[in-house]
Design a binder for these strands. Structure first.
Lengths: 193, 193
DNA sequence: ATCGGAATCGGAATCCGGTTCCGGATCGAT
DNA sequence: ATCGATCCGGAACCGGATTCCGATTCCGAT
């Protein structure tokens, strides 16, 4: 999947592996810094390889962007587990999660684009995404138990919100923290319905 | 602004005017049908003109997309006035508005892209956008008076929501009506805090 | 340690789609 | 009907992603 050119079950050559991670590291840094405007030859140069090598490992620009994004998803998963799933009593796990994701998106110019793509597309989700989905499910359950989240909240709802969040952050304008607050409290007056 | 190539205060030639609207009509139809994948030569062909002519009237692809979108904004403004601002008592105007906008976005593949751009960018807003902003402001006031909307809701909040809505619809997946419902009710349980 | 060939590499060439250019056709005031 | 200002069409240009292929490098077998 991630290394689509490896013919079959053959172990990749050592230098190929090395180049792959160099490219990925360079891409990650550049995308974070300048987002979507980064060009393929530029990534190649930064990684110290030719453009052909970049394409050997990532068949398309989009694939490279996604691979770089997956590194971030792994970080987010990590955070969800270590910082949001603790003390289920509070029922604040999902809130912490969304704020953290917002912060990550805001700090990484290139990430929001692929988040939107990932959230929407029905492409076969990778291992990390699947795990993340599980973690979010637990966050929801905790919130329900703690009576801080509505009963009918679903994982897909959170996906939707994250997609929306990334879009808002991408526009640059608007205060994404405000959006999260609105999402929790709703548009109606606080005092009952 | 919309006719940037007209030198100064000189009235455009008749055929030029005709071609302009042909191009716009073709663009509108194609963008609605197939969204962002439509190419400039294709628009030209559909309009029965050369690519040069397209560019004479719309200096850039983006400009054409926006011009096509503005037609839709006008429709939305119309709807806001005739269907949402009626009977302020109900306080349901904003809800009606958002659902209508969602429907329009869902029916027009190309629109959501420019909505995102418009909502975000601080480009000088056109006449229609300004009017729309006013109308939305009134919708908010009505909802506040009717106690169906929170006191601190701002026009910029609604902009943010519309931007989010367009992003969600663009992904194709997910149910945008659900998003609107979530936005109104919030993630917390209905019963009090 | 060396050899042979498969796997990689690098970067020039290709492809694609937006944009620009300019000779020729049209419009419309006189 | 004439003439200059405008406008038209579509070929040429350009930037950036992607493909191709001869040169190079790795690594298992000898």
């Amino acid at each position: 999947m991630s290394t689509p050119s490896t013919p079959a079950g053959r172990k990749p050559r050592a230098d190929a592996e090395r180049n792959r991670s160099r490219v990925l590291a360079a891409a990650r840094a550049l995308f974070q810094e300048r987002g979507d405007e980064v060009q393929m030859p530029e990534v190649a140069r930064a990684a110290g390889v030719g453009t052909g090598t970049v394409y050997r490992h990532f068949p398309t620009r989009q694939a490279l962007v996604e691979a770089a994004a997956e590194l971030r998803f792994a970080e987010i998963l990590q955070f969800a587990r270590t910082d949001c799933l603790r003390d289920p009593e509070s029922g604040q796990g999902l809130a912490r999660y969304l704020r953290h994701v917002g912060q990550i998106l805001a700090d990484d110019q290139g990430l929001s684009a692929s988040v939107a793509a990932t959230v929407g597309s029905s492409a076969p989700r990778g291992e990390i995404l699947a795990q993340l989905e599980l973690a979010v499910g637990e966050l929801i359950d905790q919130g329900r138990s703690a009576r801080t989240l509505r009963e009918d909240l679903a994982v897909s709802d959170v996906y939707m919100l994250v997609g929306a969040l990334s879009a808002i952050i991408r526009t640059g304008s608007g205060d994404w923290r405000r959006f999260i607050d609105l999402a929790f409290d709703g548009l109606r007056p606080r005092t009952g319905n």
